[in-house]
Design a protein around this nucleic acid. Structure first.
Length: 659
RNA sequence: GCCUGGGUAGCUCAGUCGGUAGAGCAACGCACUCGUAAUGCGUAGGUCAGGGGUUCGAAUCCCCUCUCAGGCUCCA
């Protein structure tokens, strides 16, 4: 018997009998590894544990609990679900079933137009558990295209995939395995699925899964093609990992800004207004005012000019800008006046800012001109897409347009990105990465040099911040490249925050120009930028980031003072007066009901500081401090000491020290 | 826009087989005056999302509309 030599990831080598598989390799290393093994990576490509290893290859064992291991496990679980569905609904067609973040899905088309209901989830799960118990093997086979078409003759979606690969489409290569043949995995005589693999050795290796929901999904993601039913599930390597995942979902749900917005009385969506239209209540309005005030202050410091524009305009403006040509679907239909004049609600502020620029001849000496506005815009989002404050039909952008010369573009972008990151950090968002969208391959406004310079500058600036940079090749709009700042929140979700977009197009459409030092007219470059994106969305992200416990400087109510008995009320009001003189937002809650109940209510409202004043405090001019996040009140703190602490914390944008 | 599931008091929810509407919290009133996460008693609060239908009788069954949630598509 000949032997083969295998190199392990650590560089060591092992000799195995010819024909040895990944499982043999794992077994030769240790029984625990063999038990945890799910698949192998042979020279960088994932294969099944049962595939014979080629001599001289470098092999890594994929184990449970690793990202690759989970992917294999989830993908295999998707197959089990497809089998379960075909058992329960004979004749069901299945389309595509990949592993995704935290789980998997599979798309189905049930016979006779049948639909899944929520109650079916349990039935399918039970059938899946039976399949797991049967410990069916995953057996790989390779076929020619014709064999593949015959094998899946009763599965039209699979046939379509095979045919499209056969015709040279690369889109479905991942499903099939290669451009010259198709691979399939068989679990039983009656269930086989087209698949690239790899899979776990047998269904007995699975089991820690849960079906989450059913949803409609278009075949091929195309709105015009039939809608299939997608079943989502989550799957993990152990019961503990599954439970932890469920707990994380519950945690995210607790942070949901729509839920907290209601509980904390910040904003609402009165149904009489229509979908995607919000009202801010006093507390939410306070948060909003604080965010806007701070933003205004920073913009003044950074050399922005404040402008203002109306919410409606004649259609001509958006004809000039091109919005009516390209973006009409996203706009509210026009209001038509008696004379036939059409007025539109504005979906964007940029054309107005260009009118301001164009209002009189501009000199190069005025550039860069930075025009800022909290501009409220209206977009007719499709009814199914509105979501809390993050996707609405009426919202306010912290919108600015910078008009500058091409020579100024570089420095302007550098200072702009610094400004953005600095501002976001002031709100406690610290974990960023950047995404750069570059020149689209087909048509693009502006010269190649302008694009190159803009892209190089954006890249250099991003790198100078040491931030992770994701390239969105060719993803820019035709009128200019874009950089967007993605921020990770406290539980690791990413949100698109700021966008900085260069525009080589709009100044041309509006025939904007400035007079250069050469006494000639020149076309300015325009930079669109919104740092919060929209204030509504930014508030939503902050609420979720902080789980509603906003830092003291942003808390609508910062301090609540509770008197122990009514004869402490006067002192409570005196403390309130002292704090208000320092700008604090304070409420006094007099002793009309027991202290415990008042403490509880204030805690539920996530107020940063609850101050309790009783006999000792009136006598000594002190306070009892119950800070948010703490269940261990501090007694006998001097009033002046607290005031200083509070003022420092607000100035530094800090949080209460909940011990 | 499409698919699936919802909509009962301000909030969170219960409501059996189709038989005439319930709880807790919040609100309001009275009493209680208390040192760190729920004081007690009482009062009031409903077009069961809206409209239509079936029925002796509808929160409950059927249809339409509105709206919300989760997805899909979309997000220049």
């Amino acid at each position: 018997m000949s032997t083969i030599q295998i190199t392990l990831p650590d560089g060591s080598t092992r000799d195995l009998e010819s024909g040895a598989t990944g499982l043999d390799l794992a077994t030769s290393i240790g029984s625990r590894l063999a038990k945890a093994a799910l698949a192998t990576v042979v020279d960088g490509a994932m294969t099944d544990l049962s595939t014979p290893l080629p001599s001289g290859s470098t092999v890594a064992i994929v184990t449970e609990g690793t990202p690759e291991g989970r992917e294999v496990l989830r993908h295999s679980t998707a197959h089990v679900m497809a089998q379960a569905v075909t058992r329960l609904w004979p004749g069901a067609h299945f389309a595509i079933g990949p592993a995704i973040a935290d789980g998997f899905y599979y798309d189905f088309d049930l016979p006779n137009g049948a639909r899944f209901t929520d109650g079916d989830m349990e039935r399918i799960e039970a059938e899946m558990r039976a399949i797991v118990k049967e410990n069916q093997p995953f057996v790989r086979s390779e076929h020619s295209f014709d064999e593949g078409l015959a094998l899946f003759a009763d599965q039209p979606f699979k046939v379509e995939i095979i045919k499209s690969v056969q015709e040279g489409s690369r889109e479905d290569l991942d499903e099939v395995g290669s451009a010259s043949s198709v691979s399939a995995y068989r679990n039983t005589d009656s269930f086989v699925d087209l698949c690239r693999g790899p899979h776990v050795p047998s269904t007995g290796r699975l089991g820690h899964f849960k079906l989450m929901r059913v949803a409609g999904a278009y075949w091929r993601g195309d709105e015009k093609r039939p809608q299939l039913q997608r079943v989502y599930g989550t799957a993990w390597e152990s019961k503990t990992a599954l439970e932890e995942h469920i707990t994380r979902l519950e945690e995210a749900e607790k942070r949901d800004h729509r839920k907290l917005g209601k509980e904390l009385d910040l904003f609402s969506f009165p149904t009489v207004l229509g979908p995607g239209l919000s009202v801010f209540h006093p507390k939410g309005g306070t948060i909003r005012r604080l965010i806007e005030d701070y933003s205004r202050q920073r913009h003044v410091e950074d050399g922005y000019e404040f402008v203002n524009s109306p919410h409606i305009t004649k259609g001509e403006l958006f004809e000039t800008s091109g919005h009516l040509e390209w973006f009409a679907d996203g706009m509210y239909p026009p209001m038509e006046l008696d004379e036939g004049q059409k007025y539109y609600l504005k979906p964007m502020n940029c054309p107005f800012h260009l009118l301001i620029f164009n209002a009189r001849p501009r000199s190069f000496r005025e550039l860069p001109l930075r025009l800022f506005e909290f501009g409220t815009v209206y977009r007719y989002e499709k009814s199914g897409v509105v979501h809390g404050l993050t996707r609405v039909r009426g919202f306010t952008q912290d919108d600015a347009h910078i008009l500058c010369t091409r020579e100024q573009m570089h420095d302007e972008l550098i200072s702009l990105l610094n400004f953005v990151l600095d501002l976001l950090r002031d709100f406690g968002l610290n974990d960023f990465y950047l995404e750069i969208s570059t020149r689209p391959p087909e048509k693009a406004a502006g010269t190649q040099e302008e694009w190159d310079e803009a892209e190089a500058t954006l890249t250099a600036v991003a790198q100078s911040h040491g931030l992770e940079l994701v390239l969105d090749e060719g993803g820019g709009a035709f009128y200019g490249p874009k950089i967007s700042v993605q921020a990770k929140d406290a539980i690791g979700r990413t949100h698109q925050m700021s966008t900085i977009q260069l525009d080589f197009q709009l100044p041309q459409r509006f025939d904007s120009s400035y007079i250069g030092s050469d006494n000639q007219r020149h076309r300015p470059i325009m930079i669109h930028r919104a740092l919060f994106g929209s204030i509504e969305r930014f508030i939503a992200i902050l609420i979720e980031h902080y789980a509603g416990a906003l830092p003291t400087w942003l808390a609508p109510e910062q301090v609540r003072i509770l008197s122990v008995r009514n004869d402490h009320d006067d002192y409570a009001w005196e403390v309130a007066k002292t704090l208000k003189a320092k700008g604090a937002r304070v409420v006094v809650d007099e002793a009309s009901e027991p202290l415990g109940g008042r403490i509880r209510r204030a805690k539920l409202e996530k107020i940063p500081y609850i101050l309790v004043v009783g006999d000792d405090d009136v006598r000594e001019r002190t306070l009892g401090i119950n800070a948010r996040g703490s269940n261990d009140p501090e007694r006998g703190v001097g009033l002046d000491e607290f005031v200083n602490r509070f003022v420092d914390e607000v100035a530094s944008h800090g949080m209460p020290e909940g011990r």
